[in-house]
Design a protein around this nucleic acid. Structure first.
Lengths: 235, 235
DNA sequence: CAGTATCCATTTCGATACTG
DNA sequence: CAGTATCGAAATGGATACTG
């Protein structure tokens, strides 16, 4: 395995990149994660042993560099790694357009809140502390309530009540908030349908959608409904 | 396996596309192959059982369609499949820029001649029959001599002497002709260095490089030599 | 924090031969 | 031409627990 026995550049690239998880680790690095346990949060289903192995392979391939700082290890994309952005973008663009609807297996409240919390548009948010409380009524016990606290110190994600009065409260099903996140439905649509509810003063309710930047692929135009719908890829 | 448990569009896409060989089959379809045994020639190291399995998965995923004609089965990309061109292009572009030098394992005379023969610039070639004879002096016995016959009937690749007087004879090592094909060296450079030799009348010698269109990635600009060279990806 | 160590079930794939 | 059938070797990676 690994070698395709072809000189074709696509085959050469895939020798490195078609290993399970590899491009997701790279996606995390492109999103700005730099430390082992930070990367883990972006690929929670990946075992640490495997993440470690992939990182070594990527160092070896010249895609990332590993730096041992005084107290932390840091991973950093090289120019070669940075150039994988194009690959990741075209994959995500395709995925959002042509992969079938989200299955229950694809939903993950930790990942969703982790993504949301690192994609806030801080410039659009008010000065001082802002607290967003999320309630995902159908998520499993312990992953149902979340708080994002934005202050001068940065952005914090908590799965326990930090004790500040929320600026706004967002209530939705895990599925529906995920669909908004990936751009399958728009804010307006989800709010009108009542699938997502915002509890906040009217002024804040109007602003809030602008605070969450959504997935980088949310704005990709979808295939027109006239085209044949993709079907499931599962066996 | 298969499922990453993530709603991320990149992960969704990779669920389908990170399986070994899958994107190479798609590359073949994008290059115009439409029948089973035609596809096989583009992925010679893939077993027919596995090719068959991948084709079924791709049909199921809505990326290709299978048509049973009267005497032939035809595979055809859907719009979803056609849109994978962007993915394949960004992978090949990256591969050509950042993967290490070709290893002996990557060289394959059948594949090279198969690629060359289906990428001739017929419009640039003279009327009537043209015969190109290739001699790869270091290829293994039986894969050393090739003939491409271009006539009104189309383009044929032979591994036996078709008996026509060659219009030109190309002699090179397998490695060097492959390097020219993928754009690692230019025609001029390879000819000047004598790594590739053309035996033909001067007028034809000058034209011949224009007859072969080379890999789609041959013209991708390479990283400047100032940048750190990529190292091998092998364990 | 940044990983290792271990272990085995499962998958996956390659090789080869065969078929309507 | 367009695949199936079969089989076993290899590796892959998931789970879990542990470490300096």
């Amino acid at each position: 395995m690994g070698n395709y026995g072809q000189f074709c550049p696509v085959a050469r690239a895939m020798e490195l990149l078609d290993e399970r998880w590899t491009l997701l680790v790279i996606r995390e690095l492109l999103c700005g994660s730099r430390h082992f346990n930070e990367l883990r949060r972006g690929v929670p289903r990946m075992s640490p042993a495997l993440l470690s192995k992939r990182l070594r392979t990527l160092v070896q391939a010249g895609v990332i560099e590993r730096h041992e700082g005084d107290d932390r290890v840091t991973y950093q994309l090289t120019s070669a790694g940075e150039e994988l952005r194009g690959v990741v973008e075209s994959l995500g663009t395709w995925g959002v357009r042509w992969m079938p609807e989200l299955g229950d297996e694809d939903l993950d409240p930790h990942l969703l809140l982790w993504d949301i919390h690192r994609n806030l548009d801080l410039d659009a948010m008010p000065e001082g502390r802002t607290v967003l409380a999320f309630h995902l009524f159908d998520a499993r016990q312990g992953a149902r309530d979340w708080w994002i606290v934005v202050s001068e110190d940065g952005v914090d994600l908590c799965d326990f009540d930090p004790g500040h009065e929320p600026t706004a409260r967002i209530e939705a099903s895990l599925r529906e908030l995920t669909r908004v996140w990936v751009g399958e439905v728009g804010w307006d649509e989800a709010l009108r349908a009542g699938e997502v509810q915002l509890q906040a003063p009217a002024a804040i309710r109007r602003q809030l959608p602008a605070w969450l930047k959504l997935s980088a692929f949310a704005s990709v135009p979808r295939p027109s409904p006239r085209e044949p719908a993709p079907v499931g890829a599962g066996g």
